[in-house]
Simulated assay, not measured.
Amino acid sequence: MAVIAGYFISIFFKPGSSSGFKLLLAFSGAYLLSVTVLELLPEVYETADTDIGLFIMLGLLLQISLEFVSKGVEHGHMHFKENTRAFPIMLFLSLSLHSLLEGFPLDKDNHLLNGVVVHKIPVAAILSVFLVQSKLSKLKVFLFLGLFALMTPLGSWLKNNIEIINQYVPYINAIVIGVFLHVSTTILFESSKNHSFNASKLGVVILGILLAYFI
């Protein structure tokens, strides 16, 4: 549903230049960061050993590596050439791995699910802009978005149904924390002109933090 919402935002609005979209992006970054720090991070340290910090840093480095391919779609940027006809397989693999990992710490009662949904909407909007404006056929566009939308639920399904994965859930979640920390903090700073906050952005960031704490 988040990917579908992002697609329609890309059709009816201009995500790259809209101030409202930038505020949504900032809100998603603040919400995701807050839920990660307030909920996921303490939970991981309660269930794992002292080496868990190494896996958090591994997740951060993994996300930096993925962004060499994705060019920053995960935090609301798109720097690809738009005149391609070939299916962007490397972009798909990079985003799919990112989304698959997002699904591991999620369940229906987890507040992190809300954070991932809010984060996914602007990401899907930016991605849809690139795909729609490229020379890809509509079939390839919908195939890309459809498979991309399935990755996070697939990650959650794998965790809940593949027994061997459960043995490593704290370490996988630690990697996801590293991914979230990098993505959310990058959103907060890169969505600001000259890396400065205005009143509107500060307001939505505070709102994101408060909602993550009280919901």
Rank of each mutant, 00 (worst) to 15 (best):
A86P: 08
F80I: 02
I177N: 09
F12P: 05
F8M: 07
K71V: 10
G6M: 10
F148N: 07
D51N: 12
L150R: 01
T152E: 06
H119C: 09
I164Y: 08
I175S: 00
L112D: 00
I215G: 07
G115P: 01
K159I: 04
A174G: 01
V116S: 08
L38N: 02
M90L: 15
R85T: 12
V123L: 12
Y171N: 06
L188I: 08
H119G: 04
A26C: 12
A212M: 06
L147A: 14
N161T: 13
F197G: 04
P105L: 07
M1K: 07
K135G: 01
A212I: 05
V129I: 12
G53W: 00
D51V: 06
L136Q: 06
Y213C: 10
P170A: 05
K193M: 09
T50Q: 10
L23D: 12
E163T: 13
Y168V: 02
K81E: 15
P105R: 11
E102Y: 04
A124N: 08
L143Y: 06
L147N: 03
L131R: 08
I172R: 03
A174V: 11
V69G: 00
L139N: 01
I9H: 03
G203P: 00
A199W: 03
T152I: 03
F104S: 01
N83E: 14
G20Y: 04
H195N: 05
N83G: 13
